[in-house]
Design a binder for these strands. Structure first.
Lengths: 223, 223
DNA sequence: CGGTAAGTTGAGCCGATTCAACTTACGTGG
DNA sequence: CCACGTAAGTTGAATCGGCTCAACTTACCG
């Protein structure tokens, strides 16, 4: 759940009406940070853990917009409202920033420039995601996804690189515009090709990063 | 490539070191404003006309990221570079702004806030587009697309609303993650359902906006 | 009026989905 | 610590939506 020590500490230190001051809090696994339609009072920078941003349709379909890792900023408003749900996939520490830091003239220029950079980065990342959703085959999607995670959270393991999938198949599928079955099949395919190994459902060992990267941009899933 | 006449003109008129001044120029139909990989020195606000932002894969596949209409801002940098191509689909007038207005402390605060708003709006629009690409069927995609154009550039025609498609089937297909044939078939379907009428390939008359909107969020293309 | 590009339509195919059975992983309580 | 129950993930078979390829029609421009 919440880390009491940090919250308690903050309470003592927090001065009222210090709108642009950063505050740290933690979010238990599965907890929501905000929901679509909530009005935006603060935006957040992830310090550790993983968040999932998603949008839900009335009929139950879901699109996972992005996963946010340490350093990523989430919660940018549009018309003053949140346009996604935001949930923690892992215990997560976040730093919150008054939304007025974005546009109000009095805000810290350094912070504001930093937030603008984060927004620009997000736009660029989303453009990549468009190519993924619009152009790529199931195999390319899954391979691309693994490559991007590899870059974000890969750690060396002998001559290979490993990482944990912090999200369920479910989330991967809704992120890539596929079904869980298809994601599973593609992971199996990559495993049988000898490009990855799976130790449990979450732990991925990348055996051939170059080939994997090649598959991520190769129309026919053969290379 | 670049339009020589316009560039020549700019060279004469440009005063050095007037970084934040807005400049207006026009772009002929089919002309490019910038290319993926170009370094970003200025960003642009559309005054009239239509721009297409797209990204090209090595193997020829293309994703149209967005269409920009009057009021939209394009050209946001990431790592100082453009990450899309940008081309005019119609004769277009654009106002250009020095990119330093985004982040430099000395920049006009009003302008900067405005640009931040534009960036936030873009993020929100892209989230909608994700849902489109990731969740929706061909029929929903085309219907959604028509609805959004209707809102952007619809004009009354008796009891109906009409608009011109400023882009080719080609562009629509690459925007929606479909083929031109599928786009064509869906337009035909909507026509046969009596929701729209087509006068030539570009001119659309929306006969039943409510039904069209309903189809835009209905899994089975029946309603 | 002819030529070319753009758009439409049709037939057959293929990749991803659906639906269902099965396997594995995991947390709980005996 | 094992046994069980549930949730998550995998695999298979059959279906279907959108794609490919090809022919045809329409619009546009010199």
């Amino acid at each position: 759940m919440h880390a009491p020590s940090i919250l308690a500490e903050r309470k003592v230190l927090a001065r009222p009406f210090a709108p642009f001051e950063a505050k740290v809090r933690s979010l238990g696994e599965g907890r929501s940070l905000y929901f679509e339609g909530d009005s935006v009072s603060r935006i957040y920078r992830v310090k550790s853990g993983v968040l999932r941003l998603s949008r839900l349709l009335e009929d139950g379909r879901r699109q996972v917009i992005s996963f946010a890792f340490a350093g990523d900023v989430v919660g940018f408003p549009s018309q003053g409202l949140h346009h996604t749900d935001c949930d923690a996939l892992r215990p997560t520490q976040i730093e919150s920033i008054d939304v007025r830091a974005l546009t109000e003239p009095g805000a810290d220029p350094m912070l504001r420039a930093e937030l603008m950079q984060a927004a620009l980065q997000e736009i660029s990342d989303m453009q990549d995601h468009f190519v993924m959703l619009g152009c790529k085959s199931a195999c390319e999607k899954v391979a691309s996804f693994l490559v991007s995670l590899l870059k974000q959270c890969g750690t060396p393991l002998g001559q290979y690189t490993q990482f944990d999938l912090p999200m369920a198949r479910n989330d991967i599928a809704d992120f890539l515009g596929l079904t869980i079955e298809t994601v599973s099949r593609m992971l199996t395919k990559l495993r049988k090709l000898g490009l990855i190994a799976l130790d449990g459902a979450q732990h991925v060992i990348v055996l051939d990063a170059d080939q994997l990267d090649a598959l991520a941009n190769c129309r026919d899933g053969s290379l």
